[in-house]
């Protein structure tokens, strides 16, 4: 039987379907006419009615729900077995995951195990004749490559926020099928001993309508207090460049970029950030970028709508004060 249709491996965090899963479902919908079959979602762990409903209202016509002991939290060797067994049942042509910490780990393990072809961190996917075409940034975002696969089974991870989710349609119909899987425990080699979650304070970086990010040019951790102050006035969150996180001035969870978070706020204010392609990979989807940098030739200005050439020590306090006044905060 030739493979048909699309399977989206859902990500569920804190009992909720992650936005990137909704984005994958929207993409699946777009590709479905050319790939035949349907749009299905695979939900692993404790799959609540709300989760199933959220998947269906965002485009899944079928939900494969898999719950078994040991699947509540991500375990790569167990999840690979689940994905394998559900793929054997659903026979999809294309499997989509998010380019998240789980997708980054699970997609290559599952794909090479199943001898499927794989493209990761895709910003576009299409169908060209009998082949699937995937566009992904390479060379740190300086270029993009289009790859093609004619294999019976292709897997892809999509970059968060590269595709737009469809609005929830509460009238949509879908079937939920409980699938029982058998996990061969002797193949579960990688075992989690401990989770050290840092509770994010306030607004999540990925959800903030305004993001103020600081770079190495700030010179140390202290100036981030000033960025926090500005973020409070504007109702935003603070991010950072990798140089800053590497130096330990901010936690890694604040890193924006290729190997950090992807943000698409209405307003992204980059303070003392040079705008390296790997940084822009995480923020170029922002609707408006504003840069404060003392070097007028800095790359950041090439992607900015507004810019001030100047030292942040002079520009930022006055900017913050004026924002406070204008916002009456």
């Amino acid at each position: 039987m030739t493979n048909q249709g699309i399977l989206v491996v859902a990500e569920i965090a804190g009992g909720k379907v992650s936005p990137v899963t909704h984005e994958a479902l929207a993409l699946a919908h777009k590709l479905q006419p050319k790939l035949g079959g349907g749009v299905a979602a695979l939900a692993i762990g404790a799959v609540s009615d709300a989760v199933a409903k959220s998947l269906i209202s965002h485009g899944a016509t079928k939900v494969y729900a898999v719950s078994a002991p040991g699947l509540a939290a991500y375990s790569p060797d167990a999840y690979v077995q689940v994905v394998q067994q559900v793929i054997a049942k659903a026979n999809p042509r294309l499997v989509l995951l998010g380019q998240t910490d789980i997708g980054r780990d699970l997609a290559p393990k599952a794909a090479f195990h199943l001898k499927a072809t794989l493209t990761m961190d895709c910003v576009d996917l299409g169908v060209e004749g009998a082949a699937i075409r995937a566009t992904k940034p390479v060379y740190g975002g300086n270029a993009q490559a289009i790859y093609e696969s004619a294999a019976a089974l292709h897997m892809a991870t999509i970059r968060p926020k590269a595709f737009e989710a469809m609005p929830a349609n509460d009238a949509a119909h879908g079937v939920v099928e409980q699938v029982s899987v058998t996990i061969d425990q002797s193949k579960v080699k990688v075992k989690t001993l401990e989770m050290k979650k840092e509770q994010a304070q306030g607004l999540r970086l990925e959800d903030a309508p305004v993001v103020i990010s600081g770079g190495r040019g700030l010179g140390g951790p202290e100036p981030f207090v000033k960025l926090e102050e500005l973020a409070k006035i504007l109702g935003g969150a603070v991010g950072a460049s990798r140089a800053v996180c590497d130096a330990g001035w901010q936690p890694v969870a604040k890193q924006v970029g290729l190997t950090g978070k992807t943000v698409t706020p209405d307003l992204y204010i980059a303070v003392a950030i040079s705008g390296a392609s790997q940084h822009m990979a995480g923020c170029s989807g922002a609707k408006n970028i504003v840069a404060i940098n003392k070097d007028k030739d800095s790359s950041i200005f090439k992607e900015s709508r507004f810019g001030v050439v100047g030292a942040w020590e002079e520009v930022l306090p006055a900017f913050t004060e004026m924002c406070r006044e204008l916002r009456g905060a």
Binding site: I292, R305, E314, A318, T320, M322, L326
Partner: peptide, 22 residues
């Protein structure tokens, strides 16, 4: 990706900062 950046100038850094906010 080339966007046309509108540079905000001022008498000094602080002035430019205020004008940027405006």
């Amino acid at each position: 990706v080339e966007k046309n950046c509108e540079f905000i100038a001022g008498e000094n850094g602080a002035d430019a900062g205020r004008k940027l906010a405006l």
